[in-house]
Design a protein around this nucleic acid. Structure first.
Lengths: 326, 326
DNA sequence: GACATCTACTTACACGTGACAGTAGCTCCG
DNA sequence: CGGAGCTACTGTCACGTGTAAGTAGATGTC
């Protein structure tokens, strides 16, 4: 087991004194073959002694499809939610005997090379793929699941933001979102959801602003937005933000303007990111529940792989985390 | 190309009117075979027309080893550095025609199932693996690279912290680290490095404290530590932290004690995390340069795969990012 | 005793690829 | 005009697996 080449099912067969087919039947637990317990044990111990692990490539070739699920990620530095999604999906995929692997997509043209190296049974993308990538996946007959992480949670999250601010008596709200192109698929549904929630709550038209902010923030730009909102005829008294990073920038900007939070200005985020309890004041935010979403995602994927029934449409639930900033 | 099964090299051969061997020679660009340009083009266009992509499993089976590099990650929610490491490694691996895939390891016993699904040419783990996992990898002849992300950068990062604080006139320093078991392999070399740096700078023995803090922080506990340090005979005037999250907790704790930063207490972190510019005051920290480290990591991996020369020992460089907290 | 049925296997094939070894047909040299 | 050497290919094998089809021997039935 230590030296030389890795052992194959032929080695196991030789050691157990049976044919390779018998080994295969035992190891795959086929119950339509009659195999006496003594033989079964001989095969099992031989396999254990040799440290036998079936060859992944051979199995995939024989089976005609691989047991790998490819999760295509962009390199956008996300919140802790990504980790939760990946963890949850890893567990669900593993429960079906498959394995989830994450691939970081740097450019659209990288997919071809990766597909020649690794052919998954399904690809799940959290990003929108290019037309070329879609035809490529179609050519190798890999079903694609384009997962919209944003929309399902947008309505629930923004409703909680507006509900909390309105309950505290705020009437004139501001919404601070991002201009970052990579984040637009999250930002747009939230912006729309926020508008709807304000209308539903019979609030006046909210003030809207977008600032650059994916990895770095221009606090001065945020401060300029806040200053304008404060000097308006009907001053904004509460700001809802696209995510916790924007909310943190908002807190920093408020501090430079000498505004107290939440006294002069209430601030609320989305994500319940890891640093949210550590801001000053601690950030009131919305915690997205990825668990249910991941569940739905995997059900969609199984619909594509196994002809499992298509899941019902899905609406995420979120929970409000009240700290001190709003 | 649209309907039915995916196309194989046999389909390409038939369409181009040559044998499968010729197709293979053309597509793999073998220059020891003499193939006239006309034939070459016929094969190439046939392949393009059919959207031919070689079957990954077959290639791996034939080649005897797979073109996949497995990066084994724990689920610890890390800093943006992880993203940078993954991105950099993805690019380097892709440049050799291989693909990097990331696998989230939830429990040590999960590796067996994954190895039966996917057999990489090398496994890179950012975590310490169990004995069982090591023997498993040995059994399938997959070389393992246990990457220590912590030690190479520890000396450089802590030296920068101490150097900056000492240059500002601080003599009595505190070090705030974590008790989180998953982070200990990063924390321990930094703690040691900090002690050494203090001694090298001829500073008095620093005050050391560890608080729980991986995903959640107990700001009150940090405040208790700070209060004790401040009321000591020789009060601590500057705190270096294990990472930026601990530094943020430190800022929050200082605020609850009514301490001004950096006036009463200077605070410095490590990581240059995404929220670091947004704390109040903006956080002075150490930016780790993962680029060089990733380079070294991949060189080590190639030494294991291709018998490339072993790289020289490596010491990370870091840079100080001076903002306002120290 | 002929025949069917059952157990406990084994033999043989296919998956798609890469590459070694062969070979038909042509050219060129002496 | 024989054969050496070249070009432009092709036939065939092996990688390790899962499984359908086959089969030797034992047992049971009439």
């Amino acid at each position: 087991m230590t030296g030389g080449e890795r052992s194959t099912s032929t080695d196991v067969a030789r050691r157990a004194g049976v044919s390779r087919a018998t080994v295969s039947y035992v190891l795959n637990g086929r119950d339509d073959q009659s195999i006496p317990e003594a033989t079964r044990q001989r095969v099992l111990t031989a396999a254990r002694d040799l440290g036998y692990v079936p060859h992944a490539a051979s199995r995939a070739l024989r089976a005609g499809r691989s047991p790998l699920v490819l999760l295509i990620n962009t390199g956008v530095p996300w919140s802790t939610n990504v980790t939760e999604v990946e963890d949850g999906l890893t567990a669900l995929v593993a429960a079906t005997g498959r394995s989830l692997v994450v691939w970081r997509r740097r450019a659209p043209e990288d997919l071809a090379a990766t597909l020649a190296n690794l052919e998954p049974c399904v690809a799940i993308s959290t990003d929108t793929l290019s037309e070329g990538e879609r035809t490529l996946l179609a050519a190798v007959r890999v079903p694609l699941l384009e997962a919209d992480l944003g929309t399902p949670s947008a309505a629930s999250a923004t409703a909680l933001q507006v509900g909390h601010l309105a309950a505290a008596g705020h009437r004139r709200l501001g919404y601070l979102t991002t201009t970052e192109p990579d984040l637009l698929r999250f930002a747009e549904p939230r912006t729309a959801g926020f508008r709807t929630a304000c209308a539903d709550a019979r609030l006046p038209e909210p003030a809207m602003a977008a600032v650059p902010g994916g990895t770095t923030f221009d606090v001065a730009a945020v401060a300029a937005v806040l200053a304008a909102w404060r000097s308006a005829p009907q001053p904004v008294t509460a700001v809802a933000c696209f995510n916790d990073l924007h909310a943190a920038a908002c807190l920093a900007a408020a501090a430079t303007l000498g505004l107290t939070v939440p006294g002069d200005l209430a601030v609320i985020g989305v994500d319940d990111d890891i640093f949210a309890p550590l801001t000053q004041p601690p950030l009131t935010t919305v915690h997205l529940e990825p668990r249910a979403f991941v569940d739905h995602l995997w059900r969609q994927a199984r619909h594509l792989i196994d002809d499992a029934p298509a899941p019902e449409p899905f609406l995420a639930r979120s929970t409000l985390v009240v700290r001190a900033s709003a």
